[in-house]
């Protein structure tokens, strides 16, 4: 899923400083799963903003709404009748949400309340970790099922580098050296030869380097499915 972290209250307040009537829009997709922008978090942020504005002696009128998904025009349309009644709209979805909203409602101002961080999952309660870089050409089977593009600080295809120490990455002792894990797994499985040899230079054309990406499924476009 897409993982996100909420921006600080101060940053959010500063973005909408001059606005009085505000709509806070959550999302029931990924940001609900990672406890950042679902129903609960929308209500918490709304309360926090009310308290902060009250303390500062400033007026605020906040309404909240949680959409099924902000990355789907069908759901985004559900706020069409009220969206322009507000001075500003704050989205608590990942970076996709406020863009779909901005595209749908050109007259309104949309602000992001979260920082979209990575594609990953929860490794323990309250901890999420990156697993995928969305490079567009998945080859994790070549690395014991672990992705060095997303999880090595240098995206090495022939690691580990000279900074690997006790299973940790050189950049931070709290960061796992994924190449240490890849090598150990392959050694345990007696498949070290899979890592030897020189892999050709990766094509980054399918990654962000090839420009904004688009996925077209002809069968769906044509309405056959």
């Amino acid at each position: 899923m897409i993982v996100a972290d909420r921006k600080s209250l101060d940053e959010i307040l500063a973005m909408v400083e001059g606005d009085k009537k505000i709509l806070l829009v959550g999302c029931k997709g990924c940001v609900t799963v990672c406890n950042t922008g679902g129903l609960k978090e929308v209500e918490i942020l709304a309360s926090s903003m009310k308290i902060a504005r009250k303390k500062a002696g400033k007026e605020i009128d906040i309404d909240t709404h949680v959409l099924e998904r902000q990355c789907d025009r069908e759901y985004v349309e559900q706020i069409s009748e009220t969206v322009n009644d507000y001075d500003a709209v704050i989205s608590m979805a990942c970076g996709v949400g406020p863009q779909f909203l901005s595209e749908a409602y050109k007259e309104q101002k949309f602000y992001p309340a979260v920082n979209t961080t990575f594609f990953g999952g929860a490794t323990e309660h309250g901890v999420w970790e990156e697993r995928c870089a969305g490079c567009g050409t998945c080859g994790i089977h070549n690395f014991g099922g672990l992705c060095p593009i997303a999880r090595c600080a240098k995206s090495l295809l022939h690691g580990p580098c000279g900074g690997s120490s006790n299973g940790n990455c050189e950049i931070n002792k709290d960061t796992e050296c994924i190449w240490d894990s890849i090598v150990r797994k392959k050694m345990e499985q007696g498949q070290l030869e899979d890592l030897l040899g020189v892999k050709g230079a990766k094509s980054w054309k399918t990654a962000r380097d090839g420009g904004p990406r688009r996925s077209i499924r002809e069968e769906l476009v044509q309405g056959n499915i």
Binding site: A153, K154, S155, L156, L157, H158, G159, C161, G162, G163, E170, I171, N172, V198, K199, G200, A201, K202, W204
Partner: peptide, 28 residues
Amino acid sequence: LSGDHQTFGNHPDAKNVHDIDSMQLIAM
């Protein structure tokens, strides 16, 4: 060489490249 990670240096906010790695550089 791969190169030390930019977090060690004096421009830690820089974007790194790593288009190819040191093994691929040798081969290139």
